[in-house]
Design a protein around this nucleic acid. Structure first.
Lengths: 170, 170
DNA sequence: TATTGTTGTAACTAATACAGTTACAACGAA
DNA sequence: TTCGTTGTAACTGTATTAGTTACAACAATA
């Protein structure tokens, strides 16, 4: 499974606008030919970037422009704008073993050697709360979310300006 | 877009085996009822974990056992076993703008203000190499790969033993 | 040996997501 | 008014996935 290519296309769009915007009208057709994707796809992504206030697009007139400064615009901004992950969860966790905690807890794992009869796989909770009922499940989600955070933190460190400088140095 | 739920199911499987394996025959049916997914899905994932030498599964007899010690078995091992990402790329990068570098480079972005006529979007390359031809594209991929690495490093830090200890402390 | 419970796997379905595409109304400038 | 462009809806084809049914292979055991 892979993450949508919207993200990498969006970054390519932003970089192209940042680099060429001042000397070239960056229409969806132009960007499409640069990046080799369909113009409608470009417009769809530009719409998302616009909605996130990262770029402005001139309807009728044509062309897109950066709103957010390249020195503060990070890959994380773009990542959020194109909704790479939904519900803030990169890892598509499976459903909770039980939507509502079963009373007898007969099928839930228990900790080996534990004196307690407390079931590891659940906690007392009311089903109205959005909270998870399974300890194991919760523990897994916490660690997966940490990993996602590490990825996002890496994206936050990369500004468009930094990338342009790297490209200039080639 | 989300990553396959195989990963979180696989982690749940491993944790359940690690915690209950010594006192309970962990058949695919048992695991399925614990985790609330289909037994065939469990068997498919167990097959991947077995292939990666993380667990052993007893055909006929029934039951699965950890091969790799919980203290050295990390979430990254499981992540690799279930092939969360293919071709080591989490981010589904769009295709190279051109499979083969065009001679005139007419549609490629050039750096603003650069004296050089060198095209940013490509480098001289032969199309037989698997190497990328587009500087911008390469630069994007490098940064996305760094982000992926950060996520994977986070997974490497989490052992199954650590998770079991966390669960015991509840 | 026959039975039983289980694994391994193939085949199919339904759901979901996505990029590509066509079409067209709305928009702004000349 | 014309022209180039954006914004968006609608549809297609492709790909992946979980769920499901079915069944052969396997091992223990009665």
């Amino acid at each position: 499974m892979k993450i949508s290519s919207r993200f990498s296309i969006a970054v390519h769009i932003v970089l192209t606008i940042a680099i060429l915007g001042s000397k070239q009208k960056t229409t969806s057709d132009f960007l499409a030919s640069c990046i080799s994707v369909n113009p409608v796809v470009i417009r769809r992504i530009l719409g998302q970037l616009k909605k996130a206030d990262l770029v402005d697009v001139k309807a009728g007139e044509g062309g897109a422009f950066l709103i957010k400064n390249a020195s503060t615009l990070t890959l994380f901004d773009i990542y959020q704008a194109v909704e790479v992950v939904e519900d803030i969860s990169l890892f598509n966790s499976h459903k909770q073993p039980e939507l509502k905690c079963p009373v007898d807890c007969s099928s839930c794992p228990r900790l080996t050697g534990s004196e307690s009869e407390e079931c590891l796989a659940q906690e007392s909770c009311d089903d109205s709360s959005g909270e998870s009922c399974c300890y194991i499940h919760n523990n897994i989600e916490n660690h997966l979310f940490s990993a996602q955070k590490a990825m996002e933190d890496s994206l936050k460190e990369t500004t468009i300006q930094k990338m342009i400088l790297e490209l200039s140095a080639l």
